[in-house]
Simulated scan of single mutants.
Amino acid sequence: MKKSIALFAIATVVGLGCSTASAQFKDADAAIDYREAAMTLMGSHFGRMGPVAKKEAPFDAEAIRANVAIFSTIAALPWVAYGPGTEGGAAKPSVWSDAKGFKQKQDDFKVAVTKLDAAAEKGDFDAFRVAFGAVGKSCKACHDSYREKD
Protein backbone atom coordinates (compact mmCIF):
# COMPACT_ATOMS: atom_id res chain seq x y z
CA MET A 1 0.00 0.00 0.00
CA LYS A 2 2.82 2.45 0.86
CA LYS A 3 4.46 1.65 -2.48
CA SER A 4 1.20 2.47 -4.28
CA ILE A 5 0.88 5.77 -2.46
CA ALA A 6 4.49 6.68 -3.30
CA LEU A 7 3.99 5.79 -6.95
CA PHE A 8 0.78 7.80 -7.03
CA ALA A 9 2.63 10.79 -5.58
CA ILE A 10 5.38 10.49 -8.18
CA ALA A 11 2.84 10.18 -11.00
CA THR A 12 0.95 13.21 -9.69
CA VAL A 13 4.09 15.33 -9.59
CA VAL A 14 5.02 14.19 -13.09
CA GLY A 15 1.48 14.87 -14.26
CA LEU A 16 1.51 18.38 -12.84
CA GLY A 17 4.68 19.10 -14.74
CA CYS A 18 3.19 17.95 -18.02
CA SER A 19 1.23 21.15 -18.61
CA THR A 20 4.26 23.18 -19.71
CA ALA A 21 6.02 20.71 -21.96
CA SER A 22 8.44 22.79 -23.97
CA ALA A 23 9.37 24.98 -21.01
CA GLN A 24 10.97 21.96 -19.34
CA PHE A 25 13.63 21.38 -22.00
CA LYS A 26 16.37 23.69 -23.22
CA ASP A 27 15.74 22.66 -26.83
CA ALA A 28 14.07 20.06 -29.04
CA ASP A 29 17.09 17.74 -28.81
CA ALA A 30 16.80 17.62 -25.02
CA ALA A 31 13.09 16.75 -25.28
CA ILE A 32 13.81 14.07 -27.89
CA ASP A 33 16.56 12.55 -25.74
CA TYR A 34 14.26 12.54 -22.72
CA ARG A 35 11.30 10.87 -24.41
CA GLU A 36 13.49 8.33 -26.18
CA ALA A 37 15.18 7.43 -22.87
CA ALA A 38 11.78 7.05 -21.20
CA MET A 39 10.55 4.86 -24.07
CA THR A 40 13.70 2.72 -23.82
CA LEU A 41 13.12 2.17 -20.11
CA MET A 42 9.46 1.37 -20.71
CA GLY A 43 10.44 -1.15 -23.36
CA SER A 44 12.95 -2.77 -21.04
CA HIS A 45 10.50 -3.20 -18.17
CA PHE A 46 7.68 -4.28 -20.45
CA GLY A 47 9.95 -6.74 -22.25
CA ARG A 48 10.97 -8.37 -18.97
CA MET A 49 7.36 -9.44 -18.49
CA GLY A 50 6.98 -10.88 -21.99
CA PRO A 51 8.34 -14.37 -21.24
CA VAL A 52 5.97 -14.63 -18.26
CA ALA A 53 2.97 -13.55 -20.34
CA LYS A 54 3.95 -16.07 -23.03
CA LYS A 55 4.26 -18.82 -20.39
CA GLU A 56 7.97 -19.17 -21.15
CA ALA A 57 8.90 -18.22 -17.59
CA PRO A 58 7.13 -18.89 -14.29
CA PHE A 59 4.63 -16.38 -12.95
CA ASP A 60 6.00 -14.76 -9.80
CA ALA A 61 3.23 -12.43 -8.67
CA GLU A 62 5.51 -10.33 -6.46
CA ALA A 63 8.14 -9.86 -9.19
CA ILE A 64 5.43 -8.92 -11.70
CA ARG A 65 3.85 -6.52 -9.21
CA ALA A 66 7.21 -4.81 -8.65
CA ASN A 67 8.02 -4.60 -12.36
CA VAL A 68 4.56 -3.27 -13.24
CA ALA A 69 4.92 -0.62 -10.52
CA ILE A 70 8.15 0.61 -12.11
CA PHE A 71 6.66 0.35 -15.62
CA SER A 72 3.58 2.32 -14.55
CA THR A 73 5.72 5.13 -13.19
CA ILE A 74 7.92 5.26 -16.27
CA ALA A 75 4.84 5.11 -18.52
CA ALA A 76 3.83 8.58 -17.30
CA LEU A 77 7.12 10.18 -18.32
CA PRO A 78 7.51 10.53 -22.11
CA TRP A 79 4.37 12.55 -22.84
CA VAL A 80 5.73 15.81 -21.41
CA ALA A 81 8.42 15.77 -24.11
CA TYR A 82 6.02 16.00 -27.06
CA GLY A 83 5.20 19.69 -26.72
CA PRO A 84 5.29 22.28 -29.49
CA GLY A 85 8.80 22.84 -30.77
CA THR A 86 9.98 19.34 -29.83
CA GLU A 87 9.51 17.78 -33.25
CA GLY A 88 11.99 15.20 -34.43
CA GLY A 89 13.57 11.96 -33.39
CA ALA A 90 11.59 8.83 -34.16
CA ALA A 91 8.29 10.71 -33.87
CA LYS A 92 6.42 11.30 -37.12
CA PRO A 93 5.25 14.85 -37.88
CA SER A 94 1.70 13.55 -37.38
CA VAL A 95 2.32 13.60 -33.60
CA TRP A 96 1.92 17.37 -33.91
CA SER A 97 -0.35 17.67 -36.95
CA ASP A 98 -2.79 15.12 -35.46
CA ALA A 99 -2.41 16.13 -31.83
CA LYS A 100 -5.95 14.99 -31.01
CA GLY A 101 -5.33 11.50 -32.40
CA PHE A 102 -1.97 11.28 -30.64
CA LYS A 103 -3.60 12.34 -27.36
CA GLN A 104 -6.23 9.64 -27.81
CA LYS A 105 -3.50 7.01 -28.25
CA GLN A 106 -1.84 8.30 -25.06
CA ASP A 107 -5.13 8.07 -23.20
CA ASP A 108 -5.75 4.54 -24.50
CA PHE A 109 -2.27 3.56 -23.35
CA LYS A 110 -2.78 5.08 -19.90
CA VAL A 111 -6.05 3.14 -19.47
CA ALA A 112 -4.32 -0.09 -20.51
CA VAL A 113 -1.47 0.55 -18.06
CA THR A 114 -3.97 1.20 -15.26
CA LYS A 115 -5.59 -2.16 -16.00
CA LEU A 116 -2.18 -3.85 -16.03
CA ASP A 117 -1.42 -2.33 -12.65
CA ALA A 118 -4.76 -3.55 -11.26
CA ALA A 119 -4.16 -7.06 -12.62
CA ALA A 120 -0.67 -7.16 -11.10
CA GLU A 121 -2.03 -6.03 -7.74
CA LYS A 122 -4.50 -8.94 -7.80
CA GLY A 123 -1.71 -11.40 -8.47
CA ASP A 124 -3.92 -13.17 -11.02
CA PHE A 125 -1.93 -14.60 -13.94
CA ASP A 126 -4.83 -14.70 -16.39
CA ALA A 127 -5.80 -11.07 -15.65
CA PHE A 128 -2.15 -10.07 -15.94
CA ARG A 129 -1.78 -11.84 -19.27
CA VAL A 130 -4.87 -10.16 -20.77
CA ALA A 131 -3.84 -6.72 -19.49
CA PHE A 132 -0.26 -7.22 -20.69
CA GLY A 133 -1.59 -8.01 -24.18
CA ALA A 134 -3.75 -4.88 -24.15
CA VAL A 135 -0.78 -2.69 -23.24
CA GLY A 136 1.24 -4.28 -26.05
CA LYS A 137 -1.56 -3.60 -28.54
CA SER A 138 -1.77 -0.02 -27.33
CA CYS A 139 1.97 0.47 -27.81
CA LYS A 140 1.81 -1.03 -31.29
CA ALA A 141 -1.19 1.10 -32.32
CA CYS A 142 0.62 4.29 -31.34
CA HIS A 143 3.92 3.25 -32.90
CA ASP A 144 2.19 2.21 -36.13
CA SER A 145 0.57 5.64 -36.39
CA TYR A 146 3.11 8.01 -34.89
CA ARG A 147 6.61 6.48 -34.96
CA GLU A 148 9.00 6.40 -37.87
CA LYS A 149 9.99 2.92 -38.94
CA ASP A 150 13.54 1.90 -38.10
Score class of each variant (00 low, 15 high):
89 G>D: 01
89 G>A: 01
89 G>Q: 02
89 G>R: 00
89 G>F: 00
89 G>S: 02
90 A>P: 02
90 A>Q: 12
90 A>T: 09
90 A>S: 14
91 A>L: 02
91 A>K: 01
91 A>Y: 02
91 A>T: 03
91 A>R: 00
92 K>W: 03
93 P>I: 01
93 P>Y: 01
93 P>R: 00
93 P>M: 02
94 S>W: 00
94 S>G: 04
94 S>A: 11
94 S>T: 10
95 V>S: 00
95 V>A: 00
95 V>T: 00
96 W>Y: 11
96 W>H: 09
96 W>Q: 05
96 W>A: 06
97 S>N: 03
97 S>I: 01
98 D>F: 03
98 D>W: 04
99 A>N: 12
99 A>W: 05
99 A>G: 12
99 A>P: 12
99 A>E: 12
100 K>Y: 06
100 K>S: 13
101 G>F: 02
101 G>Y: 02
101 G>D: 03
101 G>E: 03
101 G>N: 08
102 F>G: 00
103 K>M: 03
104 Q>P: 07
104 Q>G: 13
104 Q>V: 14
104 Q>H: 11
105 K>T: 13
105 K>S: 13
105 K>M: 06
105 K>C: 12
105 K>A: 13
106 Q>R: 15
106 Q>W: 13
107 D>I: 14
107 D>N: 11
107 D>M: 10
107 D>E: 14
108 D>F: 04
108 D>N: 13
108 D>L: 05
108 D>I: 04
108 D>W: 04
109 F>K: 02
109 F>L: 14
110 K>F: 10
110 K>P: 11
110 K>D: 14
110 K>C: 12
110 K>A: 15
110 K>M: 13
111 V>F: 06
111 V>I: 12
111 V>Y: 03
112 A>S: 15
112 A>E: 12
112 A>V: 09
112 A>Y: 01
113 V>W: 01
113 V>N: 02
113 V>K: 02
113 V>F: 01
113 V>Q: 01
113 V>S: 02
114 T>W: 06
114 T>K: 15
114 T>N: 13
114 T>D: 10
115 K>R: 12
116 L>I: 11
116 L>N: 04
116 L>W: 04
116 L>C: 08
116 L>G: 08
116 L>K: 03
117 D>H: 11
117 D>Y: 10
118 A>L: 15
118 A>H: 15
118 A>E: 15
118 A>C: 14
118 A>R: 15
118 A>F: 13
119 A>W: 06
119 A>C: 08
120 A>P: 07
120 A>E: 08
120 A>D: 04
120 A>L: 05
120 A>M: 05
121 E>K: 09
121 E>C: 06
121 E>I: 12
122 K>A: 15
122 K>M: 12
122 K>I: 07
122 K>G: 07
123 G>P: 05
123 G>I: 07
124 D>S: 07
124 D>L: 10
124 D>T: 08
125 F>L: 09
125 F>N: 10
126 D>T: 10
126 D>C: 06
127 A>I: 11
127 A>L: 14
127 A>M: 09
127 A>H: 09
128 F>T: 04
128 F>Q: 05
128 F>D: 05
128 F>G: 05
128 F>H: 03
128 F>S: 04
128 F>P: 06
129 R>Q: 14
129 R>G: 08
129 R>L: 11
